[in-house]
Simulated assay, not measured.
Amino acid sequence: MFETIYAQVVLAVAVLVVTFAFLKGDEPERMGAAAYAIALLATTMIRDGTSLSVPRWGVMALEIVLLVVFLGIAWHSRRAWPVWAAGFQSLIVTGHLLVAANLRPPSDAFATVINMSNYGLLIALAVGTFWAWQERRAAAMGSGEI
């Protein structure tokens, strides 16, 4: 799965974003990063080498669970990034549902939707972590606790 340089670079970016969220984020960012990391590892472990035109029920179930987690974070958080992450994750789930419903989207289009949605999700997590970090720093400066 990580045979190409491109796949390795994307994995490295995902690891950096998750690490950044764990180090500088608040509880919602850490929960989102943990859920994303667990889903990434689980998806990697259950990947069976089938084509994208065949429903992969295990991967689809993981993506649905990740969507529910982001929706839960969005429901309980006052921040905007979980809503964006849930939106991008819903695109991924929709792609899986199209394959499961046998609507046969082109596999290149399906892979593009999954990849671009994952990029959007990682960007949302990184931006949300950055703003949470900056809010915490500003609050510390305002109270004189630098």
Rank of each mutant, 00 (worst) to 15 (best):
T50W: 05
T112Q: 07
I73H: 01
V54R: 13
I46Y: 00
A109S: 12
A86K: 03
V54K: 12
H96W: 08
V68L: 14
W75Q: 12
L52V: 00
L98I: 09
S90I: 08
A42K: 00
V68P: 00
V59G: 09
I73K: 01
G58Q: 11
R79L: 11
S90V: 07
N115V: 09
L41S: 11
T50M: 09
G120M: 05
P82Q: 06
V69P: 03
G72I: 09
L41F: 15
I64K: 01
L62V: 15
V127D: 01
L121V: 01
A111N: 13
R56N: 14
R79I: 00
H96G: 01
R104S: 14
R104A: 14
G49H: 05
I73S: 03
M116G: 00
W57S: 15
S77W: 05
W57V: 15
H76Q: 12
S77I: 08
W84S: 10
V113Q: 10
G49K: 04
N102W: 09
L121G: 03
A86C: 07
P82R: 02
L125H: 08
S117A: 14
W84I: 14
W75Y: 15
L62R: 04
G72P: 01
L52Y: 11
L66R: 02
P105V: 07
V127Y: 10
L62A: 06
E63F: 04
W81N: 02
L67S: 03
L66P: 02
P105M: 11
S117T: 00
W75V: 10
S107Q: 15
I46P: 04
G120F: 03
T129K: 03
S51M: 12
N118S: 11
F88S: 02
A100W: 09
V83P: 01
P106Q: 08
A86R: 03
R79D: 12
T94M: 13
I64M: 11
H96S: 04
V93K: 08
L40D: 08
L103T: 00
S90W: 07
A100T: 08
A100F: 11
T43L: 09
G72W: 01
R104K: 12
A132V: 03
D108M: 13
I92L: 06
A80Q: 10
F130Q: 09
T94F: 14
M60Y: 12
A61G: 11
F88M: 14
S107I: 14
